[in-house]
Every structure is written in C-alpha cells, then in structure tokens.
Computed example of a mutant assay.
Amino acid sequence: MSEGRNRIGRRGFLGASAVLAASLPGIPATASAATPRPKADTTLRWWGNNSWEIRLPGGKVVLIDPWLTRFKTGTYSKEGADPDTRIEVDRRLIDGLVDSGELRADHILVTHGHYDHITDVPYLAEKTGATVIGTETHLSLLLALGAPEDQLAIATGGEFHTFDGYAIRVLRSLHSASGDRAKVAFAGTRPLSRRDRPRVISDLLEGGTLAYQVRSPSGFSVLNFGGSNYVESELAGLRPDVLLLPAGGDRVAEYVPRLLRTLGFPPYVVPTHWDDFDFPLDEPARDWGGLARLRDAVTAASPGSAFRVVDHREMFEP
C-alpha cells in the first residue's frame, strides 16, 4: 500500500447501518390496494454483491453490475481495502459460465465505477455482445479496460428505453457517503477521451451513480440501487414490484422509510450488496454486518412488504 493512502472499508462505500426510523406520523406503512399489480413474469438471480441477473419473457436477460471475479481486497477487514490492490479478471470463470450458456446478457447496466461493480463488465460485454449502459466516466473506464466501443451507450439519468417489449429506465442517483465529512470513496470523473488503463482499484472512480428500473412486457418492474442513497425526486411515481435495496445508509436521513414511502411500499424488498465479497461465489453469502439492520428497518417502515433474502446464485421468482 502506498504511503499516505488510506484503506477504504465497506462502511466507506455503503455506510455502517441502515436507518431504523419508522415512517412519518400519519402516513400508513402499507401500499394501496386500489391499483392491481402486473403479472409477475420475471425471474431474478443474485450473483453476489450488487450483481443481478434479470430474466425476462422471450429469453431476454439484463445484468446489473456483474462482478464474478471477486478478487480479495480486504474491504470488510479492520484495515479496509488497500487502494493499491491490483485489478483482476477471472476469464476462465467467465468463459465457463458464458460458454456453457449458464450466463448471458442482452444489456449490462452499470450503477457506478467502483471495482466491485465494473471490473468484469468489459470482458462480459465482449463475451456476450451485450449493450452496456453507464455514465461518461463509466464508459471511459470500460473502454480503457478493453470493452468493445460499439456496444457502449452513454447515459446521464432520465433516459427511458424500450427493447423488444421490455423497458429500461435510467435514474440519476447518489453513492453512499461515510465519515464525519460524508465523503464518497474513490470519487472523481474522467472524460471519454482518456484511455489510460486502470491498474489498481483506486483507479476505478465512482464517476456518477445511476439507478435502474427494468420493466417486463406485463409491466412488472424491478428497481435497483447500486449504493445506499438516492435522489428522491427522481423516484416520483415509480411503483416497483421488486426493490433491490442495498444495506447501509447511515448517512442518509430516513434512508429506508423515506425510500419505501416514496415508492409506494413495494410488495417485495430484496437485500443487495450485503455480502463479504472476499469469499467466493461457491460458498454461502457472509453478511458484512448490515443485513439484520436492513431487515429491521424494512419491517418497521413497511410491514406489508415481503423481505426476501437470497443466497449466491439463487433464483428469486416473485
């Protein structure tokens, strides 16, 4: 580790705990039954961290933040992650999953540029031919890491795209902040014109954060946040059927109850970004410390929402 550079722990990315405050007085913590929910025609699979596979009718597949290599960083250790940890891509692992047909993608959605979200995306894009969506910084990093340029689509938030019956809504969002000064780890941006190759995890800048809602042909929707923060005004009118909610959020006022109220108390809340990724995907997920607090916060704020925990590579069918 270079002298003078501090290690970054998971609390530097997601915060130490979820805010446990219940909903505001006078506002019921239940969703309205007036509007019927669309048909559940979507299957989800969790590949650890914030890596999600969304299988849609017609065989279409959307991946969010796919990171399968999970090289060791020490992020959850007492010392935190060493910013000089070398970036690695386990091509043999990815080849096996893609070549066998177990994993494929039509779209890959990047929430932000940190190592545990973006490292495997260039090679997965090359292997699958998927279209990748991200900010200018994300695309700059992806190009520098070898992603096919013609498969990259820039987004700033606010886009609403339709593809073969399913839709992807891109939302402006925020990354988690930590410490007394509420700082974002590995913050910064880089232009598309910059092509120097990232070598260590601190080279992978946050680069702006996006959230995504994926909607099936029936209207069934899944909303994902890559960090435990959000822009509340971006979410007005959204009523996702499944909310993929990161653990953490201790620096966000009323993180859980405010979000669930804004989204109309989703029927399903599935935790994401709660496992210690220093351990491989072929082992059961290990809680870094935020799962129980997140569960308690969701139960207090929205007792009508089903809190469903899935394990590594496990399917979830709402």
Rank of each mutant, 00 (worst) to 15 (best):
M1S: 15
G9C: 11
R10M: 15
A22S: 15
G26T: 14
A31C: 13
S32A: 13
S32E: 12
T35F: 12
P36D: 01
K39Q: 15
K39D: 14
D41N: 03
D41W: 01
T42K: 01
T43K: 03
L44I: 03
N49V: 15
S51P: 08
W52C: 04
I54Q: 00
L56G: 05
P57T: 12
G59T: 02
G59E: 07
V61H: 02
I64G: 02
I64H: 06
W67G: 08
L68Q: 09
R70W: 10
F71M: 07
K72D: 12
T73C: 07
G74A: 14
G74S: 13
Y76S: 12
D84T: 12
D84L: 11
E88S: 10
V89I: 15
D90E: 07
G96N: 06
V98T: 04
E102Y: 14
A105E: 02
H107T: 11
L109F: 10
L109I: 12
H112T: 11
H114A: 05
V121L: 07
P122W: 10
Y123D: 00
Y123E: 00
E136Q: 14
L141I: 14
L142V: 06
A144H: 05
L145C: 13
A147F: 12
Q151G: 08
L152Q: 07
A153D: 05
I154L: 13
I154K: 12
G157T: 05
G157A: 09
G157M: 03
G158N: 10
G158Y: 11
H161C: 12
R169A: 15
L174T: 06
H175I: 05
S176G: 15
A177C: 15
S178I: 07
A182P: 12
R190F: 08
R194C: 10
R194K: 13
R195P: 09
R195A: 13
D196R: 13
I201K: 06
S202V: 06
L205T: 07
Q213P: 11
V214Y: 02
S216F: 14
S216I: 14
S218V: 00
G219R: 10
S221A: 13
S221L: 07
G227D: 02
G227A: 08
Y230D: 00
L235F: 06
G237Q: 09
G237M: 02
D241S: 09
V242Q: 04
E254R: 15
V256K: 01
R258K: 13
L259Y: 03
L259T: 07
P266D: 04
V269E: 00
P271N: 07
D276A: 07
F277H: 14
F279D: 04
D282K: 11
P284H: 11
A285H: 00
R286M: 05
W288K: 09
D296C: 11
T299L: 01
T299Y: 08
T299K: 06
A300G: 09
A300V: 08
S305K: 08
S305R: 04
S305E: 04
D311E: 06
R313L: 03
F316Q: 02
P318H: 01
P318A: 08
